[in-house]
Design a protein around this nucleic acid. Structure first.
Length: 566
DNA sequence: GCCGTTTTCGGCCCGACTGTTTTCAGTCG
């Protein structure tokens, strides 16, 4: 698939045009095209064959022609001409905070700076500060920006960001007893990684709150501090922005700072088309505020149904947002069990009994113990005789802990040769079987998964794309073929809720839902605490527009077992 | 470069903060 190559090209094209000072809206157009392609599950080449490129939002004639040119020739002439006279390393510097296209153009043309190291040299020897419009403070801020940039090359996981936000909010509440203080931004939208944390608060005592905020014990650096907002960098290297608004604007500000940017721009356009104005203070008709206290009010006065934060990505949610059309997204309280966890029988630190007890506290009716199969020697995969012992133990705990049913499962390896790690006569004895690839990632992964799904004992494909968010791309697979087979065979696909996997991701989940595939959520926990990761799975499910019916974990135990393929 | 519930031309989000400025430009979200 050429999708990702085009994503990178259009993003780079936009950077180059920005550097050259081209039309601002043309630049936006290329960025939008890049984003749309990035979120596309279908192969852009196939869409071209079917003459469907023009149906994509943000892809007009000029960009469609460039896509076609690239598909046919491997080049885009206009793009290559544009970047021809720009050193490759230069555009990367646009990622550095406090360096925008203007500053970059000045340092390149006047100082001949092409790399970050050359820039640092010119800041240290004072030449940068002498440039027109620059100065010592600006120089110091760019030095800080360079440090920030180096750290930000890794976005933080949703798990780490949530923990940091929870800590900060708890601290602020304990110091000044403020009630209305909540996360906004990508954290509230449940994105899998978070670049910085936005916190929104409502108080009349701005000064006191901002003072408390910048004195947060975990603060490494205060980036900015005004009268209504301030920013700090924590010891973990995370930037946190705090904004304070009045109660009459709280809903508007929450909407505004939750984003996404693309979603907000579209809302603004709707407001404008109705001769209204939308900003972080409210929805206005002339000078009169007609909504702003609550988010619901804003959407309602725009003629829309309330859209859950996780859906606000401009992926069609605004177009369908008439009352009754917005899906009733799954809620954490509707999850009746966790369908993937490991016990001390393989590579987990948690005993089966401990997992079961913790699960009852989470309100579950059932859990699936799915340890590794025998070939996963690195994880103490289970030989058949130890399986029997595990089953006896599960039977015993099921008698002792009647509140919950412990299901006998396995995460059976799909071996590099395409076979499963246990024979069918063993597989048929499990309540549920997850089949996963752990070795030979790029050896016919698609065909191997399809073969696994064609086995009637395999109920679930575990972490179907195999990506690790912080460190690994994932298997080389044809996800559409896999979904097609899942749909035909009635195999469930996993939403692995471990925060570094979140696999399937939001976009794949939406496609799976549209294809009629059922999703099974499992934390893949290797500890008792790991069971709490279910919240990241639920957030991702909501981002994929999933409703309770789409997720087998919301079924009663009876229905769950009846819904298996057979 | 895209797009259409006043449209096929003329818009396209806009306010806060900072730093370098003598009234504003650049950056960010």
């Amino acid at each position: 698939m050429k999708n990702q190559e085009l994503v990178a090209i259009f993003e780079r094209f936009a950077d180059a045009l920005e550097f050259k000072g081209d039309n601002f809206f043309k630049i936006l157009a290329y960025r939008k095209a890049s984003r749309v392609l990035n979120e596309l599950t279908d192969d852009v080449a196939v869409m071209h064959e079917k003459n469907q490129l023009h149906t994509l939002p943000g892809i007009g004639k000029a960009i469609a022609d460039k896509i076609i040119e690239y598909l046919n020739t491997g080049h885009i002439r206009k793009y290559e001409e544009t970047i021809a006279d720009i050193p490759a390393s230069l555009l990367d510097m646009l990622e550095i905070p406090n360096i925008g296209p203007r500053t970059l153009a000045i340092i390149y043309h006047q100082l001949k700076v092409k790399t970050i190291n050359e820039l640092k040299k010119n800041i240290k020897n004072g030449r940068f500060a002498k440039l027109p419009g620059m100065g010592d403070k600006k120089a110091a801020n760019i030095m800080k920006g360079i440090e920030l940039y180096k750290r930000s090359l890794e976005r933080m996981s949703i798990a780490q960001a949530s923990d940091i936000a929870d800590d900060l909010i708890e601290y602020i509440k304990s110091v000044i007893g403020i009630e209305k203080i909540v996360p906004a931004g990508s954290l509230r939208r449940g994105k899998e990684t978070v670049g910085d944390i936005d916190i929104l608060a409502c108080t009349k005592y701005n000064k006191k709150l901002l003072n408390t905020f910048i004195k947060y014990p975990g603060t490494r650096q205060i980036v900015a501090a005004g009268t209504t907002k301030a920013s700090i960098i924590t010891d973990d290297g995370m930037q946190i922005d705090l904004r304070i608004v009045r109660a009459t604007s709280f809903g508007a500000a929450l909407q505004y700072f939750t984003g996404s940017k693309a979603h907000n721009i579209k809302l603004r356009n709707i407001a404008k088309a109705r001769s209204m104005k939308l900003n972080e203070y409210g929805l206005f008709k002339g000078k009169k505020q007609i909504a702003g206290k609550t988010e619901e009010g804003i959407y309602r006065r725009l003629g829309l149904a309330m859209i859950p934060p996780e859906m606000r990505e401009d992926r069609g949610e605004i177009e369908i947002a008439q009352p009754g059309n917005i899906p009733k997204l799954v809620d954490r309280s509707e999850i009746l069990g966790d369908l993937h966890m490991h016990s001390s029988y393989s590579d987990s630190e948690a005993k089966i009994q401990e997992l079961a007890l913790r699960a009852t506290k989470l309100g579950y009716k059932y859990i699936l113990i799915a340890d590794h199969s025998k070939s996963a020697y690195y994880a103490h995969g289970l030989e058949i005789d130890r399986l029997k012992k595990q089953w006896q133990e599960i039977d015993r705990f099921n008698r002792q802990i009647p509140e919950i049913t412990i299901l006998k499962g396995i995460e059976v390896d799909i071996l590099p040769n395409g076979r499963l790690d246990y024979p069918d006569n063993i597989l048929k004895q499990f309540d549920l079987v997850i089949a996963s690839i752990h070795q030979g990632f790029n050896r016919n992964a698609t065909e191997r998964m399809i073969t696994a799904m064609e086995n009637r004992h395999v109920d679930i494909i575990g972490h179907p794309t195999g990506r690790l968010i912080s460190s690994r791309e994932g298997y080389t697979i044809d996800i559409n073929k896999i979904m097609e087979t899942a749909s035909i065979t009635g195999t469930w696909l996993e939403l692995n809720a471990f925060w570094d996997r979140l696999d399937l991701n939001d976009i794949h989940l939406k496609t799976a839902k549209d294809t009629g595939i059922k999703i099974s959520i499992g934390t893949d926990a290797h500890s008792v605490e790991g069971l709490d990761w279910i919240k990241y799975g639920v957030a991702t499910a909501r981002r994929g527009w999933l409703e309770p019916e789409d997720i087998v974990n919301t079924y009663t135990l009876d229905r769950l077992l009846r819904s298996r393929k057979k």
